[in-house]
C-alpha cells in the first residue's frame, strides 16, 4: 500500500508533502520514509499517512474563494492614513503575496 509522506525541516515548521512510499504497514512506512525523505534534506519529523485516508477536493469541483469580486476581503482594498502598525503591514504584505500567487494560476 502507498503512504504519503510529509516532512518537517525544523521544529515548529509545517509538515509539507514531499512524496510517498510503498510499505506493507505503518512501521515499515516510517522506516522507508526516513530513508527516502529524511536522509538528505534537513528533517526534524516525518508523518506517514495511508493514501486512501486522504480526501481531496479540486478546483474542477469547487470554485475556491468564490466567483464574484471579493476584493473587499483584502487589506489592500482600504486606504488609511498615517503609519500602520507593523503587524498590520506584515499581514497586508502576506496578502499581497498570496494574491499574486493566485494570479499565477
Amino acid at each position: 500500500m502507498i503512504w504519503e509522506v510529509f516532512r518537517q525541516a525544523k521544529t515548529g515548521e509545517y509538515h509539507t508533502h514531499c512524496g510517498n512510499v510503498h510499505a506493507p504497514d505503518r512501521e515499515m512506512a516510517k522506516q522507508f520514509a526516513a530513508i527516502q525523505h529524511g536522509r538528505r534534506k534537513p528533517t526534524n519529523s516525518l508523518w506517514v499517512v495511508p493514501r486512501e485516508e486522504i480526501g481531496e477536493i479540486g478546483s474542477d469541483e469547487v470554485a475556491f474563494g468564490g466567483t464574484t469580486d471579493k476584493s473587499y476581503r483584502w487589506a489592500t482594498a482600504y486606504n488609511t492614513t498615517g503609519t500602520d502598525a507593523r503587524e498590520v503591514v506584515e499581514s497586508e504584505d502576506e496578502q499581497v503575496t498570496a494574491e499574486k500567487q493566485r494570479g499565477d494560476d
Binding site: R73, Y78, T80, A85, V88, S91, E92, E94, Q95
Partner: peptide, 14 residues
C-alpha cells in the same frame, strides 16, 4: 489568523 486580520483592522480603520 494574522494573515487574515490585516483586512479586519484596515476595514475597521476605514
Amino acid at each position: 489568523v494574522c494573515f487574515e486580520e490585516g483586512f479586519h483592522v484596515k476595514h475597521g480603520e476605514d
